[in-house]
């Protein structure tokens, strides 16, 4: 640069200093934190895929569960997949409508009153109740009186999902602008009608995606199922009576097994479970994406 003014040239470079070094170290540590998470995640996914893919086939997904000593190429996890779909499906049918209704109470009726605040707070707290406690709870109030069943498992999973659905739906309902509600009230609509015809449709994308994430979480849960459905190896199509099985329960049962075949089936089941959870998550993301684009 040619000097044009009479002023001395100014040095605006950052002098090498401890401040600058500290800043660099801090940034490097943040990146390191990310690496520390990516490595184990990568290892887990790699192991699950590598070991799971070698056993997975159509017949693995549909065949009945053999005895643990059976070699890896015998049998499959069919009953566990059926059980997971049935039990998680039933839990969803129980938890999602109730959760959305609860969120409607919090957001549309409760407003800022004390009861709504307490319920909202306790819904947050309930998300922190350990899943094993939900299992013990359903064991105490249901299994002891009516015996093991898929329905008991669905109740336990439903209890886990309920606060998650309430919280995510509540967040979505909060995003619906008040002007929309007011426009509908100004036409003389009742609150129920405003909620059902204006507010819910406006928030439906977010609610669905929140519900899908709750389903993904429930599908992977083992602890609530241990003492509610037990773990059997046969298909039980009757959800309301008799022990049942699910993917996580089978993995848990096989994980500590000394037999190579049982372990191989555990990896295959783990891959199936992870794929189901990932698909649910991706669908949820897709729904959210569409929803937010439409919202703008």
């Amino acid at each position: 640069m040619t000097v044009a003014t009479e002023q001395p040239k100014l040095d605006l470079r950052e002098p090498p200093s401890w401040r600058r070094t500290k800043n660099r170290i801090a940034t490097a540590l943040m990146v390191l934190a990310m690496v520390l998470v990516v490595i184990p995640l990568g290892l887990v996914l790699y192991t699950v895929i590598a070991r799971g893919a070698s056993v997975i086939s159509w017949s693995f997904l549909t065949s009945s569960i053999p005895v643990q000593v059976a070699p890896a190429n015998v049998g499959g996890i069919g009953p566990a997949i059926v059980g997971t779909i049935e039990i998680v499906g039933l839990a969803t049918l129980l938890a999602v409508p109730l959760g959305v209704l609860g969120a409607i109470y919090l957001n549309e009726y409760g407003g800022k009153n004390a009861l709504a605040r307490v319920i909202g707070f306790m819904a947050d707290v309930m998300t922190g109740v350990p899943s094993i406690v939900m299992g013990l709870f359903i064991f105490s109030i249901w299994v002891l009186h009516f015996g093991f069943s898929g329905f008991a498992g669905a109740l336990a999973l439903g209890c886990l999902m309920l606060p998650i659905v309430i919280r995510s739906s509540d967040e979505m309902l909060k995003l619906v602008p008040d002007s929309l509600r007011e426009a509908s009230y100004a036409l003389g609509a009742t609150r129920a009608r405003v909620t059902l015809t204006v507010v819910l449709p406006a928030a439906v994308g977010g609610i669905v995606s929140g519900a899908l994430l709750a389903v993904a979480r429930a599908a992977g849960e083992t602890a609530p199922l241990l003492f509610t459905i037990l773990t059997v190896t046969t298909v039980n199509r009757n959800l309301f009576s008799g022990a049942n099985t699910a993917l996580p329960s089978q993995i848990f049962a096989n994980a500590t097994s000394p037999y190579v075949g049982a372990q191989a089936r555990a990896w295959g089941a783990a891959l199936t479970l992870v794929v189901i959870a990932f698909i649910l998550m991706l669908v949820a993301r897709f729904v959210t994406g569409r929803f937010t684009r439409q919202g703008r």
Binding site: L41, A255, A266, V274
Partner: peptide, 15 residues
């Protein structure tokens, strides 16, 4: 990545 970490089920971590 963080979300992926969150959806890996407990029993898979255990396995």
């Amino acid at each position: 990545v963080i979300d992926l970490l969150a959806v890996v089920p407990s029993v898979v971590w255990g396995l």
